[in-house]
Design a binder for these strands. Sequence first.
DNA 1: TTGCTCCTCACGTCACGTGAGGTGGC
DNA 2: TTGCTCCTCACGTCACGTGAGGTGGC
Lengths: 272, 272
Amino acid sequence: MPGMDGELSIGAFSRATFLSVKALRHYHEIGLLPPESVSPGSGYRRYSVEQVPIAQVIRRLRDLGMPLGEIATVVQAADVDTRNAAIIAHLERMEDELAQTRATVASLRALLEHGPAPIAVEYRTVPETAALVIGEEVGLADAFGWLDAAFAELRAAVGALGLERAGADGALFASALLEEERGELVAFVPVVGDAGERARILPATEYAVAVHHGSFEDLDQTFGALGVAVAQRAIGVQGPIRENYLVGAPETTDTAAHRTEVCWPVFQVAPD
Amino acid sequence: MPGMDGELSIGAFSRATFLSVKALRHYHEIGLLPPESVSPGSGYRRYSVEQVPIAQVIRRLRDLGMPLGEIATVVQAADVDTRNAAIIAHLERMEDELAQTRATVASLRALLEHGPAPIAVEYRTVPETAALVIGEEVGLADAFGWLDAAFAELRAAVGALGLERAGADGALFASALLEEERGELVAFVPVVGDAGERARILPATEYAVAVHHGSFEDLDQTFGALGVAVAQRAIGVQGPIRENYLVGAPETTDTAAHRTEVCWPVFQVAPD
DNA sequence: TTGCTCCTCACGTCACGTGAGGTGGC
DNA sequence: TTGCTCCTCACGTCACGTGAGGTGGC
């Protein structure tokens, strides 16, 4: 009797899983969900009833934006605990993203309602700075995570070497990191005196400087103010953008109290 | 003096707006954000300082997933109030989506932790039904919104015609609507006796039937159970899937109390 | 037998990213 | 003058959707 073996045509399987027929063919093609069997003559796909719950999990993960490659590793994971742990990890990342989106929405709403806050820009030569540094080429999306890890390492090194800190932690963002979303990022911790091998001297540089208040959510406003000021009153030059974390996560968890100095390199300053 | 006119190169503009150079070229190409001027000789793009806040709003809307076409209509809106209203409307849709994603996460988490709930399937012939109907070809994503509107219209018609209702509201989902995410959707309200011109008779049909408990979030589980049962014990036939809304939004806002009968057409039933 | 279901190309979509190869500008 | 910035193709990516044109199965 047909159907008694518990196989489903692609259409029936589609209805049972809420996956479109086109999507099912695509998942077959990339090897994510091959049908239980394929008729040699006609090429008809046949799915087994055991594949229904697997396909449903795939659909739910896709609905949550997990890429197919990641879904494949999750679905093909050897044991169930590993698999569920990977899914739970994704769900937790989703929750973080939800919080992030909510913050973006709130910030944009505030910007639309109250207009942009005025931002003061000054011109200053930052003197040369002795500092412990770590640098690496990173993607812009990973930048803040990378900086957290780098500062933890640098602070440990400062302690281990018995050095005295000489100012706020900071970072240098290569132009390419901002313009192409990938480039060199340098984290540094200024130290007093000679730290020998481990230290670098950041050269004195002329900057247009603005102090950003609050979380990084609105950092674009401060960058915008600097870009406009430089376009109007100075000559921008090549070189990385510098950030000095005057008040940050180590000092307080209240992001509204955070203060970040953003320094945009300039060549020659027009009279104010 | 260069820069005094307040123009920015594409690189400086990129840094001031957090938009990549590639994205800026793309926005120029599609006409979303043409530079203030383009050098005739070199093709160099020049942006004005006035374009910085516009570009920042574009970037924030992109971060929130608004498609470029929609952004274009928002940014090019004649007056500021229209523009802000459109943005606020998008933000509100985002909030709804956030809630939806949160529900999906919670549902998947529960499914992984407790496993699927058992679902009973029975086989039954639903007798022919006289009903007021509305039908239209719709996309799957719009289906629930369309049904809400259709039932409001149908219930108004029942009242206006002085008819008596004969059972739960229901809907017929064409196979194509599920398999290709686009197809015919019919909403119906059963009525007693002869409603003349406005009524249709839904023919008697043999179905595999399961009652879904709770919100539509987990409806895939019930569809899966039906698909599996039909594959194992019956022959699926063409024809739309029928849903009867035994307990729904009009009865209670507590979605956990909702009851939906899902009917999957079959041709011949094997002995239980 | 009809007509419905399923099949395989081939191409399109969206919002850019990724080089290649070359030129202008301070 | 160097080298950095900017330019234009042409093609790739991701996850399918959209037909066209044709065949198998109950």
